[in-house]
Design a protein around this nucleic acid. Structure first.
Lengths: 204, 204
DNA sequence: CCTACCGATCGGTAGG
DNA sequence: CCTACCGATCGGTAGG
């Protein structure tokens, strides 16, 4: 639902256009075909108004992208930060953080795709803002790895930086292959990823 | 070098434009700013000819992208396939495949960024072709994991599919953070990644 | 939120 | 590889 609902809605004032509706449609379109390829005319059509009318609700195409990607990262940090900051062995917190990541991903898949793949189309201040919130996100996992080496629950064997980047890398890649309609739940996939990263695939 | 070299080169027939030169410049531009954002005028300027003249050397903008991404995947499969197909324990072959991946990445970083991040701008037949070669690439790691479970050198613990996707995910993410000028060599990073994936980060 | 429109830029081509 | 150009589309705005 929603796909053609807005576009085919004739004139009725039943549901008037709001910034949130525009955001939802933009997320879907940007996710499917990419930010630079989507024109304001595509978006206005999906929402059911004329192209110029979009600017009664949003400042610019790029500000719309910034809104999507900045809140897209916050969806994750809001949930993961409390897990990182609480007490307990770092390896257990890492597992919980990975599971939480997957749960957020499951309910914000399209927005996350836009967030992780299209933020680099931002420019100037908008880009700077995004780089900052991204760094916050990455810092959470960096801390978990560092604390795991401290408390002895995570190995210092491999370079800690590579370890951190591997964790973030796997979670980022899940954006491309996770399916909310698949047989495995977000928590099950999260546990499987945590297994790979902490237990490893080797037998000895 | 190369950056302004072609553009500021006045007229001299010293180095005439070839399809390969266009490809090299396109890789750099697409990698830096994204395929849809780069215009044929940007490319022609980088190469030192007028926009329309590009079409004496290439068929279209999209065929140029296809050329870049298809050969971009083959750079990896050409090197990794022989490792997968040879004899020996699967865990050792997996480590060698990961190391080989990183060495190819180190010498084709820009092209790999375009290959892994912009192939979805292809359409129709071009898209189909790319999906096919991508599947070949992913199949290599899928086989390694399956053979590792068979020969007992890799654990069946976690879902094998998640294991495969995790490997591919980490290697794909390396495209975003690997630096050829960094202190760690491609092989060292490759070993660190193989350690994370086979030994795991956990202590027990 | 519509009408009416702006200048800029897009990929690509005919004919040398 | 240049000259000269095409129709289409782009993000965005003035004034209601």
């Amino acid at each position: 639902m929603g796909r053609k609902a807005a576009a085919s809605q004739p004139k009725g004032q039943s549901t008037s256009v709001t910034p949130d509706i525009i955001k939802v449609e933009a997320i879907r379109l940007f996710s499917e075909r990419g930010y630079p390829v989507i024109g304001m005319r595509d978006l206005s059509e999906a929402v059911g108004i004329l192209p110029g009318s979009l600017y009664a609700h949003i400042a610019s195409k790029e500000k719309l992208l910034l809104d999507i990607v900045a809140s897209g990262v916050r969806n994750f940090t809001d949930v993961i930060a409390p897990i990182v900051e609480r007490d307990g062995p770092a390896d257990e917190r890492l597992r919980e953080a990975i599971r939480a990541h997957m749960r957020v991903l499951a309910v914000t898949l399209d927005q996350t795709r836009v967030t992780f793949h299209q933020w680099h189309y931002l420019t100037n201040d908008n880009l700077d803002q995004m780089v900052a919130v991204r760094r916050d996100y990455e810092m959470l996992f960096k801390r978990l790895v560092a604390e795991g080496i401290e408390d002895g629950t995570l190995l210092g064997t491999s370079r800690p930086t590579v370890a951190t980047l591997s964790i973030i890398g796997v979670l980022g890649s899940a954006t491309e292959w996770f399916s909310p309609t698949g047989s495995a739940s977000a928590d099950e996939i999260g546990d499987a990823i945590a297994d790979v990263l902490t237990l490893g695939l080797g037998t000895r």
